[in-house]
Structure formats: C-alpha cells, structure tokens
Design a protein around this nucleic acid. Structure first.
Lengths: 194, 194
DNA sequence: CCTCTATGAGACACCGATGTCTCATGATTA
DNA sequence: TAATCATGAGACATCGGTGTCTCATAGAGG
C-alpha cells in the first residue's frame, strides 16, 4: 500500500513534513542549508536526500507544492462568480489563509520563474480575468495593466501576512485590513458601491 | 588628495561603481557570487576585495548606502510639510526615483535587520510621523497601525518599480500609478478631497 | 523469528565560493 | 625619468555545502 503511493502513509507524512519545513525556513532565509531544512523538519539529512535528489529537486517540489496550494485557494474563491468586488474579498481572504505559501513564493521574486518558466500566466489567470472583468464593468481602476494590479494585490496580501508574522497586525484581521486598504485606498471617504 | 579621502576621486568612483553594481545584482539574485558582482561592476575580483574585505563587509556597505539614499529621498520629500496627501505624493515619487535601492533593500526582508539591527525605526520615522499626522487630521485610514501602513506603501512602491523593471508598467508613469492606487484604491470612485 | 522498510548517524570525496597572495601593466604624479 | 597608485589576471589554499555511500537500529508485518 504505502509502497505504491509515495504520497500516503509514512512516506507521505515525511515528505509533507520536509516540504512544509522547507517552505517555512526558505521563506525566511533563502540561503538556508539543506542541513537547516532537515533539522527544521526533524529528519536526518540522509532522509531528506532520499526524498529529494538534490537542492534543485527540493526547491522545485516546494514551489510546486506552494503553487498548488495557492491554486486551490484561488479556485475555492470562485473568482469568476458574483460581483467583482465580492470576488476580490473572497480571493484575498483565501490567499491570507495560505499565507505561509505566499510568504515563501514571494520571498524570492524570481524563484518561480526560474524553476517553472511560463507558469506565471498559468494558475493565476483567473485572477487576471477577474480584474479585467471588474475593469470592463467599470468598477475597477482601468488604464492600468490588469497583470500589474494582480501583482499589487498580492503584494498587499504578502505585506499583511508578514505584518501578522511580525506581530504588527492582529492575525485575525489581516484579510479585512488588506481588503479595506485595497478597496478604499489610504484616504478616508465614503465606501464605494458594490 | 585622493589618497586621504576614500570617497572622492578614482577610489570613490570605483567604490560607488561596486556598490551600485552590487545593489543591482543582489536585488535580482541574493545568492550572486562576488565574481558576478565584480563582473557587473566591470572590475576585477581582486579590486573588489581591496575595497571590501569580505562578503559581509560588502553587504553591510550596500545596505548602508541604500539606506542613506532612501533617507535622502525621504528628507527631500519634506514629509512634515503641507497637506498629508501631497506629502505622500512627493514621498512616493522620491522613492520611485531611488527604485534600485528599494528593490535591493526589499528583496530580502531580513537583510536590513540582520546587518543593521534597530535601524528599522530609524531613518523612516518621518514617514510614520506623516502617516500619523494624516490619521490625526482624519484624512488617512485610521484603526490600522501606522507602521504597517508604511510597510504597505513601500510594498506598492516596490511593486511599481518591479513592474517597470519587467516592462509591465511604463517607467515614466510608475509613481503616478502607485499614488493613484494608494489614494483611491482599486475601486472607481470620485477622487477624495485633499 | 524473519524480512522488509524507513530512518539517523556518520564517513567520504567533490566542487565551487571565498579570501589572500604575487606579479605585470598602465596611469598619475613628483 | 622615477616613483607611486590603482588595477587585472591569475595562482593558491581553505572552507563549507553538497551528494553518495555504508552501517546500525527500530518498527511493522509476514
């Protein structure tokens, strides 16, 4: 059983532990040693090498794992349904929930592109579509590339997660704060209509 | 003359070339080799070692240099003068002008803290004060820590610079785009009063 | 009891980055 | 011209991370 499926049973658990520890450690220090990661995952360095041939292999796996998690969060937010403003709220909330992965993926801007060239316009296409839809409906800022607006949204999500990580922001209010700043901007004003 | 002042003449120029190249290269790859940096600065690796004893020394110098550049940009923006909204505009514009330094310093969130512990609440205190002033005057979003709002502003500036770097945003309109998104948010609405 | 599996500890060689060194070459200055 | 300075090229040893290996152990399942 467990010998046929590498993602279930003991091996699956060890594998996930390594991936999780690697994401956490690498998000905070991209030059971390494989020994560091193994220690954080509470496994021997030998074991780490049994699961991932070399450093590149591990990196690739962690990136893929994080992309998958974020992809799921995007899908769950159903960005193509309902008013764009509400969809963005669902989206941001979902992204904050997988904040660890966001922190990791965005800790190195070129990491994804190097290991997964072309995946930039892949899983996050629904987000771009959502922004475009909002722009077409006249409720979102137009005259600015949707691709960049997406980047800006993610930057705010990242900043929110990092703020919670540093204790500057209360963890439970991160999504709300980010959404508020994103929707209304820095200025005090009556809220926009949905 | 030039032998007494290490920051003027030939030595000063070489030193600045190395610092500038190091910022540019390291912003895009923090694991870059000293040989990479020397090549980008168009100097020999020996020369680099003559100016900076070891890698840590160079890192420290680049961070200090970048902090100084940003500090100057902040001072030039005179954040304590005039209406907060206009001060923020000047500030963002000034930050975009030193975008290379911003890209470098923010490429590694923990770089500054490791090399210059405690400098986080140093040169950028005027920015926090500006935000607080805006909050006190009731024109800026309150109920959110000013420290985090500052981080969010810098994240948007960073994203704008990066967008220009990738060709997603036209380089000449970066500051304006960032200011607009920052002030008005994602939603289309009548502009707020200053 | 025996076997298979997963693991940790450690030894080992390899390689690339690093830091130090010397030497030769132009450029600048006295 | 002579002396000094800044530099590049390259040799060199060192160090640490990496990848591969073996061996001993513990647990699960037959």
């Amino acid at each position: 059983m467990s010998s046929s499926d590498p993602h279930s049973g003991v091996r699956g658990r060890t594998r996930r532990a390594i991936l999780s520890a690697a994401a956490a450690v690498l998000a905070r220090d991209r030059t971390a040693t494989l020994a560091d990661i193994a220690r954080a995952a509470d496994v021997g360095r030998s074991t780490l090498h049994r699961y991932f041939a070399d450093r590149d292999d591990l990196l690739r796996a962690v990136v893929a794992d994080s992309i998958a998690a974020i992809d799921t969060a995007i899908s769950d937010a159903a960005p193509e349904q309902g008013p764009p403003a509400e969809a963005v709220r669902r989206l941001v909330t979902g992204m904050v929930d997988v904040g660890d992965r966001v922190l990791f993926l965005f800790s190195d801007a070129h990491l994804v592109e190097e290991l997964y060239p072309g995946s930039i316009d892949g899983p996050d296409q629904p987000v771009v579509d959502l922004i475009r839809r909002g722009q077409d409906e006249g409720v979102f800022l137009s005259g600015v590339p949707a691709e960049w607006l997406e980047t800006a949204i993610w930057a705010l999500v990242y900043t929110g997660c990092e703020g919670a990580d540093r204790g500057v922001l209360p963890r439970h209010g991160v999504a709300q704060t980010v959404v508020h700043l994103l929707e209304n901007g820095l200025h005090v004003r009556p809220p926009a209509t949905d």
